[in-house]
Design a protein around this nucleic acid. Structure first.
Lengths: 335, 335
DNA sequence: GTCTGCTGTGGAAACGATTACAAAGACGAC
DNA sequence: GTCGTCTTTGTAATCGTTTCCACAGCAGAC
């Protein structure tokens, strides 16, 4: 049915070894090379990657496991990864786990069965904790989230600094009751909370952090809660949000309950997505160097493939604060 | 180095055939099954998928080629596809082509070399035209875009009807100078233009369609053009936009040039993305049944795998019009 | 003329699984 | 006791490549 290298060899009147050498690299005379190429074209031959991989023990495949490709941060990273991979003649298997440790475990098993050349991985907090026991026999580069341990290479944003920058900015603009809203699954949120907490203390303010599931609805409910209680809870006049889904939830809640931004509630978050510019007065956010993060991860991976036993490295990149109307000066927004 | 089925067989004191039967399906006594499972656990054995695929001639892999995963429509579809695939015990190779025919050709070649079980494909107009000559020897289901030919199964939105619905809605709200802004690469845009054109005629209005590259910047420049000319071009009082990137561009231009929505320009588009609810007065859009589209595609694929030579089918789904403030009645918005 | 080395080629052994086939044992039916 | 049938197991062929090895031919050095 399907045409194999044998058929090509037969048609060209050469051995399969010669065909293989023409397709790959190896010494072969011009005359035979021409005959083989003609036979390949005539038969419409396509090499079987499974067979090639089995024999050569090179999968030329890199795995990319992220929590959710719908998160534009990961979308951008994956594009960078894919570009780098194809430049290196490799394929990318993309998996998203929905922050579900079971799915992560399944995908890690798949990566092993596929014998991937390397893996770029944004693990949940749960999986990160047991990653050292996973027994992965290929290089791994962690992105976005990384543990304290130096077991794997990683590339991350300086989350503490970024969160502190947002708090500093809000403080400079005159806000004092600054709440923090964080996701409760990723280590990223933990680090951002660390930066938030430290900065609040440093500025002599009282930290007020909430951890919620990483969905817009959760953030919306949280904000609704502030308004419902009224008496018992001191409503913040600004909120720092640790990811863009939660940010969206806060905006939704503000619209729903008629809160003006920043008049009733100033707002600052993470990830400079296209829509943050368009919503209300524009949203102040930390912009991550998404493309660079993807590139850095691929570089770390290739370098480790080159020198398997060099010490692990952690690349820390800085975000930049994009200031927009959602954090206009406190006095001005009271007028 | 890496442990193979042979090592497991040796450790369990059985033949490789028995190990294979335990892992797959086949008659094997409870005693041996237990010994094999123990050996698998002890050795940390993971089957080699390349070998399995080569021998069994089943790749258990489906390809998904889209123009750009950053397009939330494709993101949602891919999620549905992935879920269905994993439920069927299959893997998904995700490729995005950036609307580039060369990249498409490369990926199609890759699909052949991977011997995929089936392919779900959103082709560019260029590739769609020569798809019949591609000689693909696996089932293909086209999504989002589909040709007139009945060569492949497909699942699409009723684009004519959807575009006509938007025009009808704008007309009912009192708008008369309704421009249309369309991408210039996809057949989707062509169909939506068809619906727009027909509906305009039907309502006794003069069509005013522009085709631009599918980037936000292109839409932004187009709108800027309307304002710059001033005298020569009659500025539309409403615009129908054929995809969400262009929609974003129009919103950006409106903000930049101080156009109020819908006061100066009413706006209606496609794809009910989360941010369309949050921008300005909310944007009126056609919501596509994205999840159903993905599911329908997978169903078509599985049915064709079941009955390879049945006649091709085209599943046409309808969108729903989500009305928001960007298309408030003309009179009201003039007040 | 022999020896060495280099180039191009083919034969055949892997790679790690599945699976066709054969064999061995158990069990009833006669 | 013999025969057929059914279940469980092992042996070996096979999938489509790459790659090791052998070898033929040829050129140059001695």
């Amino acid at each position: 049915m399907t045409v194999s290298i044998k058929d090509v060899a037969l048609k060209a009147g050469v051995s399969v070894a010669t065909v293989s050498r023409v397709l790959g690299s190896g010494p072969v005379s011009d005359a035979l090379r021409a005959r083989v190429e003609e036979a390949v074209a005539a038969t419409g031959y396509r090499p079987n990657l499974s067979a090639r991989r089995l024999r050569s023990q090179h999968s030329q495949t890199i795995g990319l496991i992220v929590s959710d490709i719908r998160n534009p941060f990961f979308t951008a990273v994956s594009r960078a990864v894919e570009d780098a991979a194809f430049q290196a003649g490799m394929r990318v298997i993309l998996c998203n786990t929905d922050e579900n440790p079971d799915r992560e475990a399944m995908y890690l098993r798949l990566m092993q069965e596929e014998r991937v050349t390397g893996l770029i991985f944004a693990p949940t907090r749960t999986t990160l904790g047991r990653l050292d026991r996973a027994g992965l026999d290929f290089p791994v580069v962690l992105i976005d989230r990384s543990g304290p341990s130096g077991l794997y290479d990683s590339v991350v944003l300086d989350n503490q600094q970024a969160a502190a920058a947002l708090v500093g900015h809000l403080h400079a603009q005159g806000y004092r009751r600054i709440a923090g809203l964080f996701g409760n699954t990723s280590t990223t949120a933990v680090e951002r909370h660390g930066g938030y907490h430290a900065a609040m203390i440093e500025h002599g303010l009282t930290p007020d952090a909430r951890f919620v599931p990483p969905y817009a609805e959760a953030a919306e409910a949280e904000v609704a809660g502030w308004l419902a209680d009224g008496s018992s809870v001191v409503r913040p006049d600004a909120v720092m949000v640790s990811n863009s889904l939660l940010l969206m939830g806060v905006v939704k809640a503000a619209r729903k309950h008629g809160l003006s931004i920043p008049g009733d509630l100033a707002l600052a978050g993470f990830d400079n997505e296209a829509w943050t510019e368009l919503v209300g007065p524009g949203l102040t956010v930390i912009e991550q160097p998404v493309h660079e993060i993807g590139c850095a991860a691929m570089n770390l991976l290739f370098e480790r493939l080159d020198v398997p036993d060099r010490p692990t490295r952690k690349v820390v990149l800085s975000g930049t604060c994009v200031v927009r109307g959602s954090t206009a000066p406190w006095e001005a927004s009271r007028v």
